[in-house]
Design a protein around this nucleic acid. Structure first.
Lengths: 180, 180
DNA sequence: GTCTATACATGGATAGAC
DNA sequence: GTCTATCCATGTATAGAC
């Protein structure tokens, strides 16, 4: 087989982008099709329904998360540092997919999405816990990260905290870890 | 004049409830009307458009926030404690209105809502900062609180952290304040 | 694989009776 | 102040040509 249908991925990208930048309601089939540069009919060839589009994003999330968890584990810096740093919406693929799904799940009931997002959160927590030891501190780290996400999700256009901001956050959290 | 139109408030309550429990997309005029126990026409007498409904929630937010900020300031416990404790979605009026608006603003562009929510966040930050002194710690407190909110917003049906959870969080944060 | 045309359902909003 | 009836626009989805 050639390469994962690039037109299909393009449609998914377009869907993601509109949901993030303009909201779930704006992401109609026509809008997504136009953004992806195909016709409505063309889009529906790849994704036979709106739900199929959402399912496509979910699959994408699963793949990206796997890679992310590996990445968080390896490397010299602490997991906490990498974790906090990556929870700002820097436009990485995972961030975008996560944000889009977080929005979609809020706009109407998608019973399949919630558990997936919850599983991601749980995996993150375990990874942080393994490093810092204290469950309360781990919880705080994950919550702060969620807080950063929340702001990004609330307003993806808002200015993200810069490197110095992140540094100070990590250091502040570090005071808790050091004291154990 | 008699009393703030109770039927009007009922419609607003219904709108809020559906947005929170089932998502913005489900909160159609018919659905809201039915939930409020009036007809679509009846609803539209009080709120002449969907936008008017949203505006109604915004006004409500402003009122409730004013009361909340006062409440956070007075009383014997620390602001941090009250703040964290109240950021769990216990179903208070402010929580509900905030959650509903946070969802609405994500589903399509509502230029008027974002600044209002941002102002609320800023006010909370200032209040916490005044107590803890250290901007980095204050930031962390507010972010953790946002994280709690985020989880609630993501899934209002999920089990909320109980009193003991909150206690441990406050204590953990307290270790940072004490060390200053 | 991608397009156009069209059917069908539904959401927002108006008109006017009671 | 609340209701019913109705109009209009738009979003999802199907059919079938190319």
């Amino acid at each position: 087989m050639p390469r994962a249908n690039s037109s299909r991925e393009g449609v998914l990208d377009a869907f993601e982008q509109i949901v993030i930048e303009q909201g779930e309601r704006v992401a109609t089939l026509s809008a997504v099709a136009e953004q992806a540069g195909v016709s409505k009919g063309g889009l529906l060839y790849h994704f036979s329904s709106k739900q199929a589009l959402v399912d496509g994003l979910l699959e994408r999330l699963v793949e990206l998360v796997e890679a992310d968890l590996e990445w968080l584990g390896e490397g010299p810096e602490s997991v906490v540092e990498r974790f906090i740093r990556s929870s700002t919406l820097d436009g990485s693929s995972l961030d975008r997919t996560f944000t889009a799904l977080a929005r979609i799940v809020q706009s109407t009931d998608h019973p399949d999405i919630r558990p997936a997002l919850a599983r991601v959160e749980a995996a993150w927590y375990e990874l942080v816990l393994a490093e810092v030891g204290d469950p309360d501190v781990a919880r705080l780290v994950v919550l702060a990260s969620d807080g950063l996400y929340f702001r990004g999700v609330l307003d993806p256009q808002a200015p993200q905290p810069d490197a110095a901001d992140i540094d100070r956050m990590v250091q502040t959290l570090g005071r808790l870890v050091a004291k154990d």
